[in-house]
């Protein structure tokens, strides 16, 4: 009985958080001089209005799914892998590099794509290990290390686009020369949606779920995350596990970046990561690191993103409104969680 009561109580608090977030956002919309209800309607329409909209939402869902899944591994080990953004970017860079290297070779295109995706994963993984090495051997907190590496990764993209990989003639913000269609991941007819990418995203999430819930490896990561000192004395090689968790997260982030190239943009563009790394951090925090909730919440977040594209056209509102909603939602949930703890102090 008591258990049930607690569950309802929790649900009540969570609903409260959503209401609070909506309230905050509505205030922002009102301040911008638009009717809130209309804005929400446009958001929904933008995300799900047409078949094309739905497909675009799913396209955006995949990288967020991958980034968040990867982050669950580093969070389990007690690490704040802010560098996930840079790891996505390095995934894109490595994939672009492999494609550029092999696009004129006689190898079958499918094989080239597979190599390019594996290359991208490796790139993300290595970039993550770099943040891990900085932490374990250099004493650099992973938050600062990751932040620094993110800046380097972004600069590297710009340098590649305007330098060594520039389009014939003059470099442009629109990115590198697009790859021939044979090197695109096949998409559903008439849509930008690749069924392969979606499958990879879902497989990744399932793998992470079982890794963290059911394996010795996952439990050891959790031990390292909760108390590295005791974990070490219980015989777990602590720093090796930390590096490994960075590498795993980097693999998933790299896969996200890689798919952005082979399935979505077919070239390297300056903002290739589209902020999915940071968004992934928010999703992970919002769901309190529970793998079970990654898929729905990530979907909700990208729906907001895609839906907001509609706003400037329909209501002359900036599309950054989706960011406001996401941000206030995370803050509202964290605040309400804090209040709940205070009220039910144990």
């Amino acid at each position: 009985m008591q258990h049930n009561e607690k569950r309802w109580q929790n649900l009540g608090f969570q609903l409260g958080a959503v209401v609070l977030a909506l309230l905050l956002t509505s205030l922002v919309i009102l301040a911008a001089g638009a009717p809130p209800l209309d804005a929400y309607k446009q958001l929904l329409k933008g995300a799900f209005g047409t078949k094309m909209n739905v497909a675009d939402t799913v396209v955006a869902w995949v990288p967020l799914l991958l980034a968040t899944s990867g982050l669950l591994v580093t969070f389990a080990a007690g690490l704040w892998n802010i560098g996930v953004e840079g790891q996505i970017i390095l995934g894109s860079i490595f994939t672009t590099g492999v494609l550029k290297l092999l696009q004129d070779s006689p190898l079958p295109p499918a094989f080239i794509i597979v190599l390019a995706v594996l290359g991208g994963m490796l790139g993300g993984g290595l970039w993550a290990v770099l943040a891990g090495v900085l932490k374990t051997f250099g004493g650099v907190n992973e938050i600062f290390g990751g932040l620094g590496l993110n800046f380097i990764a972004t600069s590297m993209t710009i340098w590649l686009i305007f330098g060594p990989w520039k389009r014939p003639g003059v470099g442009s913000m629109s990115g590198t020369e697009p790859f021939p269609e044979s090197l695109w991941l096949p998409t559903l007819p008439g849509l930008r949606l690749s069924i392969w990418a979606v499958m990879l995203g879902i497989i990744a999430l399932v793998v992470i779920y079982f890794l963290l819930q059911g394996t010795y490896f996952g439990l050891k990561l959790k031990a390292v995350g909760n108390n590295p000192r005791a974990a070490f004395l219980l015989g777990i090689p602590t720093w090796q596990y930390m590096l490994l968790s960075f590498f795993l997260c980097g693999l998933f982030a790299g896969l996200a970046g890689s798919l952005q190239v082979v399935a979505v943009y077919h070239r390297l563009i300056p903002s290739i990561s589209s902020g999915y790394g940071y968004l992934g951090l928010m999703v992970a925090m919002l769901i309190n690191y529970q793998a079970f909730w990654v898929a729905p919440v990530a979907f909700f977040f990208v729906a907001l993103n895609i839906g907001s594209i509609q706003l400037p056209i329909a209501l002359k509102l900036d599309s950054s409104l989706s960011g406001v909603i996401q941000g206030s939602l995370v803050l509202a949930v964290l605040v309400v969680e804090g209040i709940r703890h205070r009220l039910l102090r144990k």
């Binding site: 079982f210 059911g214 394996t215 010795y216 439990l219 959790k222 909760n226 108390n227 974990a231 777990i236």
Partner: peptide, 21 residues
């Protein structure tokens, strides 16, 4: 390790065969 149960402590220090707990 705070946050882990007694059971999980025994799993960590006990014999570990295979991948899955």
């Amino acid at each position: 390790i705070p946050g882990l149960s007694i059971n999980e402590h025994f799993i960590l220090t006990g014999e570990q065969k295979g991948v899955f707990i």
